[in-house]
Amino acid sequence: MPRLLLASNSPRRRQLLTDLGLPYEVRLKDVDESYPPDLHRADVAEYLAAHKASAYRTELLPGDVLLTADTIVCLDEQVLNKPTDETDAVRMLTLLQGRAHDVYTGVCLLTGEGQQVVFSDQTRVHFRPLSETEIRYYVQQYRPFDKAGAYGAQDWIGLVAVTRLEGSYFNVMGLPVHRVYAELEKLGFGVQAL
């Protein structure tokens, strides 16, 4: 029986995949998330998604499709990954407030037969100016330490700070589901397979 395997600990990615109505299993493994410093920012998310998938290559069975993803936030040429602590989260949000930035989510689909599809989606996010009090409130209440750029668009800060999106909202949440679904359909995992 073919299996869709999600290699992600993100509750948001799990929820989005569940919302697609496709059955899947979760597989978790610690994978180094460093990347070559000379990579262009648009390529970092795709590189990390493919790198994560390679850690599972020998474990896949025929018919399996593994899905890995990585989301990064870019302000100009600076990549903002997950904050290391509260101070780092405040620093990142201070940089982002009042400005527009780009969110890239890279996705890798790897089959048990060795076929690999790698792609990414980009969304431009506009933040209104935020006070230091608002930033500290968000960091202390929501503890966004598992989120690229130190924020979740579905959290309080998304409700009060995001003024406009150019692109997919779900991409900002961590999975460009419209693109993922289209690629999964090509691999036989769309609703027609249910």
Rank of each mutant, 00 (worst) to 15 (best):
M1F: 12
P2H: 06
L5E: 06
L5S: 08
N9F: 07
S10H: 01
S10E: 00
P11G: 10
R12W: 00
R13V: 01
Q15M: 06
L17A: 02
D19C: 00
D19Q: 15
G21N: 09
P23S: 07
E25W: 01
R27F: 12
L28G: 00
V31M: 04
S34A: 12
Y35D: 02
Y35M: 03
P36G: 06
D38M: 04
H40N: 09
A45W: 10
L48I: 13
L48Y: 13
A49R: 05
A49N: 05
H51E: 08
K52Y: 05
K52W: 05
A53S: 10
A53G: 00
S54K: 14
R57I: 06
E59G: 06
E59Y: 02
E59P: 00
L60M: 08
D64K: 13
T68E: 01
T68Y: 01
A69R: 00
T71H: 03
I72Y: 07
V73D: 00
L75Q: 11
Q78L: 15
V79D: 03
L80R: 06
N81Y: 00
K82T: 03
K82E: 05
T87A: 15
T87S: 12
A89W: 10
L93H: 06
T94Q: 13
L95N: 05
L96Y: 10
Q97N: 14
R99S: 07
H101A: 10
Y104F: 15
G106V: 13
V107H: 01
C108Q: 07
L110I: 11
G112V: 05
G112L: 09
G114A: 04
G114Q: 03
Q116I: 13
V118F: 01
F119R: 12
S120P: 03
Q122A: 10
Q122R: 15
T123A: 08
R124M: 10
L130S: 11
S131E: 08
E132W: 05
T133R: 14
E134F: 09
E134W: 07
E134P: 11
I135V: 15
R136W: 08
Y138T: 12
Y138A: 15
Y142N: 12
P144I: 09
A148Y: 08
A148K: 05
G149Q: 11
G149C: 11
G149K: 11
A150E: 08
A153E: 01
W156C: 08
W156I: 12
I157K: 02
G158R: 06
L159M: 13
R164W: 13
E166M: 14
S168A: 11
Y169Q: 12
F170C: 11
N171L: 13
V172M: 11
M173W: 04
G174S: 10
G174A: 10
G174W: 01
P176K: 01
V177Q: 00
A182E: 07
A182W: 04
E183G: 01
L184A: 05
L184H: 06
K186I: 03
K186F: 02
K186N: 03
L187D: 09
G188N: 08
G190Q: 07
G190M: 04
G190S: 04
Q192L: 12
